[in-house]
Design a binder for these strands. Structure first.
Length: 552
RNA sequence: GCGCCCGUAGCUCAACGGAUAGAGCAACUGGUUUCUACCCAGUAGGUUGGGGGUUCGAUUCCCUCCGGGCGCACCA
């Protein structure tokens, strides 16, 4: 029996208790099934009596007793106990527990998928860097977390589109062009320009490919270098992200927003809702109507659209493409945007609580030999995605960035991430997968055809086996809650627990028969358990975009 | 000044309002002739920054103070 099935049975009991007039509540409560930390509390615990107690006005332990009476006869449940303030603690029949392994092998790659977000269309926008340089550590965090979040949401049934907004318009990209142009002409790059070594590289590449550019006027050169640099830098970002296994569905250009008329369209929609006004020759959006601390300019007095105008148009455009939920992943230095974005939604007649979600990612630092790394060869005083991947590889980089909740800052310790031991969680988890693969390989070498043998779940009775089964049964709910809370780090943490449960099982339960021993029900059941664990590790790692190696 | 995030074991960090606050590292004990020791089991370590409040129950929610990070453009 999976926890989902248990939860269903409990809900049915609740309904029948209500129907029988033994409980009176108006709305169905949020009940939780958990794996108790304390083993003495059984396989699963449920808080239903505690939750129901208040609206019903009865003692939680008395209510718990009603459920015990109702559920006690179920053959899959070996024991129910009322504990503490009114928890229901379930101990399942070992046969029923063992069946989880079979469920997992049947569902295979689908195990962990749920339909909890069926019908939701979600746009998730992240990184959205200027195409004026390499991606830095902050972007890298989002590349990993945003992608994992998208996968977790998709696994929960949502229709997800990953989007990268290209800031290819405005002062920054102009400065980029000016900087490359200066470098190409061996002139000093302006103070407020781009100074990384990559600017010089771009300059020499471009002049090599298109030497005629240098014959143009200065102004024309700046434009040409800007366009060439943009093209190449964008391509570079796309390549780097592809190697990092973060694939975007949509690369949305800010310029296209202007050329397609989306900006005017967005503006007219906002006007319709009456929050646009004129002041000092400029056009403003009255975002203070919805909690922003000051109003924002859409069109400057000189007739130019602001960056904010693009932002609002982009939001309106996303909504017109049918996205109910729009998730923005931003760096900590952009937290001032949260109220602004919410206000934009409200000004466009939407509900910010529903249509806009902003996640703020805190700072990422890199540590090597106990010292903070501050300098990158190519990019000057920022550390790039490539710097990190060069040091630790894609798997370790992704895993570590995803492992922590985004609203805390992280420090990546290079020395630790390259170590192959217990204190490096990436290896710990991957090693569990490799270890299982080795066992299954050995089984096939010994010609043990466990896949075709009959599975006796009751053969799994040792405590470490039960623990492992319990951990495996948790997976779908971990994925669903990661999606719901927008916290993919829960998947990584779960995988570590699962790996621990497996290593513990492995060291106390011999799987394959020794020479002279026979293949028994236990052998087959344990191989099934190994295969199920391998499957879940693989599914979980794939949700965070980390490889599941067969050998290490 | 206003706003956002953070403060948990010596260190790096977990913990959807749930039971005795957990992992790893470091320290100390043990364990493998056997499927990958890149492992496992155990001991010790805490006033969850301080103080109030809400709750049957608070690391979690609210208020306040202290400490740290970040942000407050007709820039992008």
């Amino acid at each position: 029996m999976t926890p989902e099935e248990l939860s269903k049975i409990i809900k049915e009991s609740l309904e029948s208790l209500i129907a029988a007039g033994k409980l009176e509540i108006s709305q169905s409560p949020e009940i939780k099934i958990e794996r108790p930390k304390n083993k003495e509390h059984g396989d699963y615990s449920c808080n239903i009596a505690l939750v129901v107690a208040k609206p019903v006005g009865k003692n939680p332990r008395d209510i718990a007793q009603l459920f015990v009476d109702k559920l006690g006869a179920n053959p899959s449940i070996k024991r129910i106990e009322i504990a503490g303030p009114g928890f229901l603690n379930f101990t399942l029949d070992s046969k029923s527990m063992g069946e989880v392994a079979k469920t997992i092998l049947q569902q295979a790659d689908e195990y962990g998928h749920t339909n909890s977000f069926n019908g939701e269309t979600i746009n998730i926008e992240f990184i959205s860097a200027n195409p004026t340089g390499p991606l830095h550590l902050g972007h890298t965090r989002w590349a990993a977390v945003g992608d994992a979040l998208a996968r977790v949401l998709a696994a929960s049934g949502a229709k997800v589109v990953k989007e990268f907004y290209i800031n290819d318009r405005g002062a920054q990209i102009d400065k980029f062009g000016i900087s490359i142009c200066a470098a190409a002409n061996n002139e000093p790059i302006p103070e407020d320009g781009y100074h990384g070594a990559y600017v010089k590289e771009l300059a020499s590449e471009i002049t090599k490919d298109k030497p005629q550019i240098l014959k143009l006027s200065k102004q024309e050169q700046e434009i040409e270098f800007r366009e060439e640099g943009y093209k190449r830098q964008l391509k570079q970002q796309q390549l780097v992200l592809k190697d990092f296994r973060t694939i975007f569905d949509v690369w949305y250009s800010e310029r296209s927003l202007h050329s397609s008329g989306a900006v005017e369209k967005g503006l007219s929609k906002l006007k319709k809702y009456g929050h646009v006004f004129e002041k000092d020759g400029a056009t403003w959006l009255k975002t203070t109507d919805f909690g922003d601390d000051k109003d924002r300019v859409l069109v400057k007095a000189d007739g130019e659209y602001t960056y904010f105008a693009s932002d609002t148009a982009y939001y309106v455009d996303k909504r017109s493409r049918g996205f109910e939920v729009n998730i923005y992943l931003l760096g900590a230095d952009h937290h001032g945007y949260v109220n602004r974005l919410r206000a934009v939604a409200a000004c466009a007649g939407d509900n910010p609580d529903k249509n806009v979600e902003v996640l703020i990612g805190q700072l990422v630092k890199m540590l090597k030999n106990g010292q903070e790394v501050r300098l990158s060869k190519r990019a000057g005083n920022i550390i790039t995605l490539e710097d990190l991947v060069d040091e630790v590889g894609v798997d370790a980089a992704r895993y570590t960035l995803i492992r922590y909740p985004v609203n805390t800052s992280v420090t990546l310790d290079i020395d630790l991430l390259t170590s192959h031991t217990n204190d490096n969680p990436v290896f710990y988890v991957q090693y569990a997968h490799a270890r299982i693969s080795a066992v299954l390989r050995a089984a096939s070498e010994k010609k043990i055809d466990w896949q075709k043998s009959s599975f006796n779940p009751a053969a799994l009775v040792v405590q470490q086996e039960t623990e492992l089964l319990g951990a495996l049964s948790e997976f779908p709910r971990v994925v669903a809650s990661s999606a719901q809370l927008r916290e993919p780090h829960r998947v990584a943490r779960y995988l570590e627990e699962l790996a621990t449960a497996y290593h513990s099982f492995y060291s106390s339960c011999r799987v394959l028969p020794l020479i002279g021993e026979d293949v028994t029900d236990e052998t087959i059941a344990r191989l099934m358990l190994c295969a199920a664990t391998q499957q879940v590790l693989k599914n979980g790692l794939s949700l965070i975009g980390v490889s599941a190696p067969e050998k290490m």
